[in-house]
Write a protein that binds this DNA or RNA. Structure first.
Lengths: 226, 226
DNA sequence: CCCTGTAATTGAACATGTTCAAATTGAACT
DNA sequence: AGTTCAATTTGAACATGTTCAATTACAGGG
């Protein structure tokens, strides 16, 4: 479950086969979409029997999961670099999103297969246990986006704000996936407007006066997560 | 597509068969879940051949859609009655939700099949064209919940607020569907807390001072809906 | 009461995700 | 080289949503 098609040296022959299957799948997914691609096609394209695909991946979904996992790993250095570019919170949040969208651009449609499931039981849901690790690592980046910015966050709000921002991000990404406007212009507009609102709210939330509001929001969040 | 299993007189034999299939399906869905129920089972249970089910319903999904449609019709009088019970906005909003949750309670799990799809292209998505009619009718109830309350809504905000409230409702319903706590206690808590926040925000939004904020929110919404 | 055409019904066939028992491979050991 | 055994590979078989050509039921007209 660890190897990826872009690792420099697929050590064993097994790894090489796994990589070939993953590559074939991603190629077909990009060209004809997730639903439209058959496990038999993937196997044929990779030059193996149908069953072999299932020897390496538990299911068709699991192939997407493997891609998602690999993506997260490859994104890490890009995000690190982005976080070094600015101290301004709005810039930092925009960068987090931009880097991801640019990276996933070629597979935008495919991401639908990942994001289309709200059911937290479904393996491909962004809220499922299967995607937990990736999710938590992602939330950490919002923690860092905040920490590295010039903006102060109230102590009681600190543990929760990153998760709130992550949720906003997921909403925007979802919108982006299904955005049919020319080169996703609408998403671009939405991101800019959302950032303005979010950053303003974050700043506001630090006011001592806002403590009761923070408490209510935190209370709400804890009820949700409990 | 119009008849339902609970209509008093299924006029024709055809209607009667259709109703029998829908009933059998709903019964099986309730007992073993949507995914776990087979079209062959449904047909057998209804005493027809597999193909017959497809003569009356375009797909397995379409059966759920038919149920959803029927539900909306049956809910209408209940919601009307609820709207006559109080002038207080919080009460009215709570009632809208409570009536629906109580109605759907026996099929809570099944609703997952309806709500689990974020893809607006998917027939069962709450955002799909197939569910548009039901959706718009539902949004109207929020319009009425506002209109019949003692609370004033700023002119510029009036066309948009119902949709915002509807979205909040969908979020709560989604939470409810997957709420595994004892008799969905967590949802109950979440509803109460959410209502407090939402009603407070609605009241706040009417302040003349808030006009710029309303503009930003409206702008955001229009970007999303465009 | 028979004829005719539409509506309804049937069950086999198909496509595709998945499983599985059997065959093959290949490395390590003797 | 021969043996052994786990890893790999195979392709047929299975389950299930869906399609479809063929058949039957039945209402209305003669």
């Amino acid at each position: 479950m660890e190897k990826s098609s872009t690792d420099v040296r697929p050590k064993t022959k097994s790894d090489e086969t796994r990589a070939r299957i993953l590559d074939a799948a991603m190629d077909l997914f990009r060209r004809q979409g997730f639903e439209e691609t058959t496990m038999r096609e993937i196997a044929t394209e990779a030059g193996v029997a149908t069953g072999a695909a299932y020897y390496y991946f538990d299911s068709k979904d699991a192939i997407v999961l493997a891609f998602y996992d690999q993506a997260q790993k490859e994104l890490q250095p890009l995000l690190d670099k982005a976080m070094a570019a600015s101290k301004d919170l709005k810039d930092r949040l925009r960068l987090l999103l931009e880097v991801k969208l640019r990276y996933f651009e070629p597979n935008r449609r495919l991401l639908g297969a990942l994001a289309a499931h709200a059911d937290p039981e479904h393996p491909l849901s962004p809220f499922s246990p299967q995607t937990r690790e990736v999710r938590e690592r992602d939330i950490e980046y919002f923690q860092r986006a905040l920490a590295g910015s010039s903006i102060h966050v109230a102590r009681d709000f600190e543990p929760h704000l990153p998760r709130i921002l992550w949720m906003c991000q997921m909403g925007l990404i979802l919108f982006w996936i299904y955005d049919r406007s020319q080169s996703q212009k609408r998403t671009q507009a939405l991101v800019e407007k959302s950032l303005a609102i979010v950053v303003r709210l974050v700043k506001l939330s630090d006011l001592p006066l806002m403590k009761p509001v923070r408490r209510i929001v935190i209370d709400l969040l804890e009820t949700m997560m409990a």
